[in-house]
Structures are given as structure tokens and as C-alpha cells.
Design a protein around this nucleic acid. Sequence first.
DNA 1: GTCAAGCCAATTGTCGACAATCCTGCAATT
DNA 2: AATTGCAGGATTGTCGACAATTGGCTTGAC
Lengths: 241, 241
Amino acid sequence: MKNGASIRDMEKLHQPDGFAPLDREGLVDRVARLLSQAIVSGRLAPGERLSESVVAKQLGTSRAPVREAARLLESSGLITYTPNRGFFVRRHSATEIDNLYEFRITIEIAAVRRLMREGLGATAAALGAQIEELRRLAEPGHNMLTQVEADMQFHRLICQGSGNPRYLRSFERIAQETELTIMLIGRLYDDAHRLAETHVPILDALLSGSEDQAVDAMFYHLDVARTLVTEQFRKLEESTP
Amino acid sequence: MKNGASIRDMEKLHQPDGFAPLDREGLVDRVARLLSQAIVSGRLAPGERLSESVVAKQLGTSRAPVREAARLLESSGLITYTPNRGFFVRRHSATEIDNLYEFRITIEIAAVRRLMREGLGATAAALGAQIEELRRLAEPGHNMLTQVEADMQFHRLICQGSGNPRYLRSFERIAQETELTIMLIGRLYDDAHRLAETHVPILDALLSGSEDQAVDAMFYHLDVARTLVTEQFRKLEESTP
DNA sequence: GTCAAGCCAATTGTCGACAATCCTGCAATT
DNA sequence: AATTGCAGGATTGTCGACAATTGGCTTGAC
């Protein structure tokens, strides 16, 4: 099989009537998306080398777009880059995960504060709908990655609704990394129903109008996740040193 | 003059006895540094186009390193990138500046909290030395950019001492942007002596051992800066719409 | 005079090739 | 046996050229 321009052709099939502007994704973004999917889904293991030429050959492009995409993912924390050595799938320590969650708490608490001061607006309905989506995805027949992405989407909506784009931007920078750590563990809660319901108190607190209540609810939610993920990860670390 | 490898040669002269590992900067980083200097110092005006080929020719390199450097600066907020259009020096609105400072406050307050819990350690002495440096640079004969950089260095030390590298990383991402906004205004305080002394209460509060006092001092310091910069910028905006 | 369609110059997007650098393994030396 | 020095192979770093896209300009009709 000759695989030149395979990405282009392959994806054209998925948007038969797509407008041109939607096609304006750019090869770099496409490569970045495929790479991050491969990493988060676990097809590329932590520590693994990302040879530019190998990836380029597999995707049917040249090395230049791969290089740019890799640097993009580096700023997302998914891969590391060492000069003259190349790119590697990032390997996280338990401490780094803990720091990641601490940072995430800082950002999201600040976003909640701002959201409460600016007013919920359309965000309230969006959050309610997202909880419904989480419940729907908790039913059998949905894979874990989809559930985790829906989870993150709930939190993304809050950063988005805060009104300060910096919080959203900062959130996006750690979102994929967070998804990766959860996927590495293999599970967050015992079942996805539980995951969905843990978001209800947050929305309730937001609707209560009390900034303190909202902050407390968000902090509790994230602090539980932080403890769960970090502890699970520490166990994982001990079993495979 | 043939200007191939002109950067390489030019900068070799500045480190006559430097060890090889220090030379390990890479062409991309060098271009990024030169570009950011040009932007922050005002030699490249906001809104100005950054043609890849022009920059490449000026620096004596090819377009590839310029492209990578430009994307690096994009993630630092100094320039914007539009697909198929290219790179432009970023133009900030007063609202964006306000959001920038709000975000900065969030990060640095969190860093202060963590620093107080982990203990100051060697950071205390470093902060004291940095205040001395600020006083020294306040004497006549020093340009404003140097003073602003020293100011940022004080805050960088706090993020660094916090113990969570995420705060430092986040700080670095907005540091250059912050410097740019101050340089665009042309002044922060009436004189640099005043700038130096506003850092003393922060260090005092840190040394007091009280987390609340430390947070308050840092918040006051940054909130004053936020008001000053945003207001100045709004005036600037009105005079040149 | 206004507006639309289509060409044209300029810029970005991508590519393949060459140069520089790093890791590996072996061999020679201490 | 351990260490140092030195090829050999592989990978990244950089480059110049070509293809694709954009925005402006000209041309023409109304």
C-alpha cells in the first residue's frame, strides 16, 4: 500500500458536505490530534520515543508538520522534547500528578469565583445538559475515554463561562494531560454513574448564588479526584518501578 | 556581506570561554530570544506583520527555525498566528491586560500560599538580594527594560520557590507579555526607587510567617499594578484608537 | 460609479535532501 | 576488569525549492 496523502484522503470521507472553512484544520492540527489521541488512548506508551521520520512515514506526510505538531503537544504536556534527542511520550511521576491537580484546583477555583461574580448566564443550562450527557454515557456500551472527555467538558464549560479567557486557555493546556493520567490508571470511580452524580453538587452550589458554597463544592470535588488519582498512581508506580 | 550563519558567529564572540553545554541553546531558541527582545523593547510594533522570509533573511537563517521560534512566542502571548496568513505582533486591548493581571494574581497568590506552607528556605535570601538589585538599578544610568526585568525576577523567585513547577511554568508563559504591556505604557511608577520599595512589604510579610499577611501583601502589590497598568493602557487606547 | 468575477503577486504550507549531532558497540589501553 | 577513544549508524537540525492559499487589483458588465 502506498500511503502518500493518506490522511487527507481518509478524512475527506468523513466530511462529504463539509464547508471549506471546516477543512481549514491544517495538516499540523490533524497530526497533533491524531498523536494526542494515540497517546491518551494508550496506544503510545509513556517513555516511548517519537521518531519524526517514523511518524511522518506512518501518517504519509513529511517531517515538518510532525515536528510542529510535536512541539504543540509539548506545550500541552503530553510529550517532552530534548534538543538533539527528539520527542518522547511524557512519563509522569506521582508527585507531578499531585502538582498537576493542585494547579488545576487553583485555576478552577479562580474560574468559579469569577463565574459567580459575573453571573451564570447561559452556563447554567449548559452545565445541566452536560450532566445529562454524563448520565447518558454512564449507561453500558460507552468506553471510558468518552466518559472522561465528557467529565472534562463539564469543567471546561466553567472555565469558559468565567469570562476571563486566560482560565480557559490554562485549562486547555492541562486538560489532555489530565485525561492521560486518568486513562493510565484505568478508572476514576468504581462506576461511571457515580462520576456523573459527583457533578450535581457543584451545579447546585453554583445555582445557590453563594460564592463560598460554590468554591467549597468545586474544591471538594477536585480534592477527592486529586487524592484518588494520586494514590492510584503511587500504587501503579510501586508495582512498575 | 554573505550572512549565512551570521548569528552563530556573532554570538560566539560574547562567550569567549563558555563551555560547550552552554552553547547548546539551539538556533530556534536564539531566534526566539532575539524576536522577543525586539518585541518587548518596542522595535517591532503591535500589529506589525512578521514575515517568515524577511525575518529569516535578517537573521541569516532559513525559514524553518523562524517558524518554530514564532510558534514558541505565540504560546508566550507575544505574537498571534493565523493559518495561511502568518504571524503578527500581538495587539492587546485594555480588557485583555486586565484579564492578564487577574490571572497573574491568581497564580502568584497560589504560589505565595504554597511557599508559606513549604517554608521559605533559600528563597528568603534570594528575595532580599533581588530587592538590593532593584535598588541598584534604580540609580541613574539604567534603562527601564532592565528594571522591569528585575521586577519580574522578584516574582519569578516566588513562583520558583513555591515548589510546584506548574506555577513557575505558568508564570513564564505570561512574564514576557507582562513586560511588553509595561514597556508599551512607558512607565510603571514615577520613579524606579518607588518600584523597588514596593517589594519590601512583600518580603516582610513572607518573613512574618503568617500566610494571610503574605497573601494580603502580594495581593495589594499586584492589585495596585493592575490598576495602574490597566488605566494607563485605557488612556493610551483612547488617544490612538 | 458600483459591484462582481477572475487573474496575479506575495506569502505561507509542505516537501525531500544534506549537514550536524548523538548513541552504540567495539577495541585498545591502563 | 574498567575506562577511554574511536568509528558506524541512526536521528535530529537546517536548508532551499516547489505547491497551495490568500488578498488585492484589474477588468468588465450593469
